[in-house]
Design a protein around this nucleic acid. Structure first.
Lengths: 213, 213
DNA sequence: TTCGTAGACTTACGGCCGTTAGCTTACGTC
DNA sequence: GACGTAAGCTAACGGCCGTAAGTCTACGAA
């Protein structure tokens, strides 16, 4: 984690061999702009430079162009999300039901804590332009693959412990469950006021995991 | 529906008293830009004017500013979506199961046929800026209210006909079902390749509507 | 102490944007 | 046919953007 991000004050040049640190500072600056509530249009090459306390062209030493910055942000946040899900699962013990809700709620929490980051990750505008340069559809697919296999794993545990109705395609059920979570998380990230009862999340999880009772 | 949208050729001035027609042409031009695959950044005041074959300042006779154009597009497409759902429901007969799948699939079809329009409607960038001018959170909420009550209605029919497990909160279930549909529709609109089996939609609907068997 | 070079900076160009101010044209009334 | 006015245009401003070209500077090895 980089600390000096919010400072607009003069910046100490990095020491020899540590020039790569600026790369992280740039990413952190972009994330900070998002967290301030601005949408992706607020994350311009120049605004990122201002936030990081550097001159705009200095970014080119670390990123080929502006979309590349967004891509780096997305990849970092995707890793963070996967780590959060893993951690929630590991801390949930052996009970399948607790594991299920722990992982799902962790997903929703990550989205709720940083709505703009979540919006960028899924459904961002960066997808098409980035496609021109480096990332492929398969890359995008593999980004969420880890989370999906974890979900499928937890769903399998639910079936094994007899608290959920079985299925012939656990991975497909995991995708369906994720889509439900995504719908809720995304909508929360976009609007300030959500329709429906407060326990929508639990309803979604129970229904999509085919929990008994 | 306005016809002459794609033409870049000289444009016939509207007759006296028909100046308002230009307003529809402007909206149609904005929609056309979206349908060409460009994201909302492609819908600029000037690009819309070019597409409509008029000079940029001529827009100000019909829209206060650029976000207002997007707002008009969203409202129009929301109405279209609601109409499509109603029509699907009316053509589905009396069988609750058929009504359910007809309405849900109509929703997914609308999103799939015009992905960019769908992205703008839900989760667009226009929300914050528009909020400064005219529209309120309640307006946004009421936009989808019609669709939600329709969904709740169909869910109630499923329970009445004994093909779904009952619930104490049909509206809450309708919201959950919509969130699932939205998750799928939005993800389809954003990525080109979806993970999971082909029948994810059916799985989502069955699970979230609590269909028996 | 010298000096090569990593790690930045300054300046500048061209482009598209939103928006304002003022002008032109032709419709339709009389 | 004259003419008021609706409908739309041209010109221009300032602003922010991405990016290229060249310059400075201080760290650390010799």
């Amino acid at each position: 984690m980089v600390t000096a991000v919010t400072t607009t004050e003069p910046r100490k040049r990095n020491r020899r061999g540590e020039g790569g640190k600026l790369r992280e500072e740039i990413i952190a600056a972009a994330v900070a702009l998002l967290d301030e509530g601005g949408d992706e249009r607020a994350v311009t090459l120049r605004s990122v430079a201002r936030k990081a306390g550097i001159a705009a062209p200095s970014i080119y030493a670390h990123f080929a162009d502006q979309p590349s910055i967004m891509l780096a942000v997305v990849q970092q946040e995707m890793d963070r999300l996967a780590a959060a899900l893993r951690e929630a699962d590991e801390n949930a013990g052996q009970d399948a039901r607790q594991r299920l809700f722990a992982v799902c709620n962790a997903y929703l929490d990550v989205a709720r804590q940083h709505p703009q980051r979540y919006r960028i990750m899924f459904g961002g505008l960066w997808t098409p332009s980035v496609n021109d340069t480096s990332i492929t559809d398969d890359d995008l697919e593999s980004l969420g693959a880890e989370a999906l296999t974890l979900l499928a794993d937890v769903l399998g545990a639910c079936v094994d412990q007899g608290i959920a109705h079985g299925s012939d395609d656990l991975y497909g059920d995991a995708v369906a469950l994720w889509l439900g979570l995504h719908g809720l998380a995304h909508q929360r990230a976009v609007v300030r006021k959500m329709p429906g009862p407060a326990d929508v999340a639990d309803r979604l999880i129970k229904a999509l995991a085919h929990l008994k009772a």
